[in-house]
Computed example of a mutant assay.
Amino acid sequence: MEQSKYALVVLLLLGSCLSGCLSESPSKASISLNVSADSYNGTLFESYADGEKISSTNLTVEFDFSLTSSSSQLVTFGLDTMDGREPVTINAMNDSLIQVEFFNHGIYDVTAFAIDEQNVQKNQTISIHVELSIDWVESNTYEPKALAFDPIPLNGGPNPSMIEVNSVVENPSLLEEFETGAQSVQITWNIVDEQNDVCQKKTTQIQDGDSGDWYTIHFNTYQAHQLTISYDDGQDSINVHHSLPLLYED
C-alpha cells in the first residue's frame, strides 16, 4: 500500500514537471494574410502618329495589407511580381500599402507575403490582368506604314486570348467644292505573320470624301504580326486610324 502511494506521488510530480516544460515552449506564430488590390484589371495605352510613338501609359496597382494580422509582431510586408524584378518590401510596423508599376501586358500571378519577428512567412497569390491598347494615326499618307504588334507577354505568362483589329481609312476630298476630278482608291488591309504569310485580309473601294473600315478578331497570339495597308488602285492620299486592343480572358 505504501509503495502504491509512493508511485502515485512520483507520477504526479513527473506530470507537473512535464506540464511546466510544455507550457514554457514557444508556440509557432500564426499569420492571417489578407491582401487586396485597388485594381485587378488594367490597360496600358500606346499612341503613334505617322509611325512614331508619341505617348504611352503604364499601370500602377496598389496592394493593401492593412487587414493582415498575426499572433506575433509583423515586421515585413512584401510583393513579388514574379517577372524577374526584385520583390518590393516595406516595414510592416510603419506602413501597409505597396504600389507596383506594370510596364508590359500579361497576366501576373504576383506573390504577396508577410513576415513576423520569428521569421515566419505567409504567402498569398493575386492575379493581375494587364492588357494593351494601341492607337495608330497617319494623316495624308501615300505610303501607309506597317503597324507591328507582338502579343507574346514578356513575363512568360499566358498569351492573350485574342486581338481586336478596328481600322478606319479615309479618302479625304481634295476638291471640297467641286465633284469633278474626285478619285476613289482601292486598298487592302493585311494581317501578316512572321513568315510573311497573310493571316487575314480585306479589300475595299473608298470613294472620294468617304471612308472604309475593317473590324476583325485575330486569335493567333503566339507570333509577332504586322497590320499593313496596300494600294490596289488610285493615287489619292489617305488618313489611317488603327485601334488594336490585346485582350486577356478574365
Rank of each mutant, 00 (worst) to 15 (best):
H242Q: 10
D208N: 12
S96T: 13
Q3S: 15
V240N: 00
E24P: 01
T204L: 12
V35M: 02
T221V: 10
V110S: 05
S23W: 15
V100D: 01
I163A: 10
E46L: 11
Y222S: 11
V88I: 15
Q186G: 14
Q121R: 15
E117Y: 07
V120H: 09
S56A: 14
I126E: 02
S243T: 14
L14C: 12
D64N: 15
I191F: 04
T216C: 10
S70P: 06
P245C: 05
T221Y: 08
F102M: 06
T180S: 15
S36P: 02
S69P: 07
K122G: 01
E179H: 06
F178S: 13
D193F: 04
I191H: 01
T203R: 06
P151T: 04
V61T: 04
T216L: 09
S70I: 02
A37F: 04
I217F: 10
V100Q: 14
L79F: 05
P153E: 03
I90Q: 06
T216I: 14
K53Y: 08
N104W: 13
Y6I: 13
F45A: 09
D109Q: 11
H218N: 05
L132N: 07
H225E: 03
S32K: 13
S4G: 02
Y108K: 04
E86A: 14
Y108M: 05
A92W: 02
L14D: 06
T81Q: 13
S127M: 10
T221I: 03
G20V: 11
A148V: 15
N159L: 11
K5W: 09
S139Y: 12
E164M: 13
N41G: 08
Q200N: 11
V75R: 09
D38Y: 03
Q121P: 00
W136M: 05
S243F: 13
T76R: 10
Y6C: 08
S36K: 08
L247T: 07
E46N: 10
E249T: 11
S161D: 12
S127C: 07
L11Q: 12
T76F: 06
Y48N: 05
D83C: 08
S23A: 14
T57V: 07
G20P: 05
Y248T: 05
C199S: 15
A146R: 14
E170K: 13
I191D: 00
E176Y: 07
I31Y: 00
H129V: 12
S4H: 14
F113T: 00
E46W: 07
S173K: 08
L246C: 00
D38Q: 04
L227T: 01
I90R: 04
K53L: 14
N190Y: 15
D232I: 11
G212V: 06
D38L: 03
E176I: 12
W136P: 00
T43G: 02
L67H: 13
P144H: 05
L74W: 01
I191M: 02
D150M: 08
I115W: 01
E138Y: 03
S56I: 05
I31N: 02
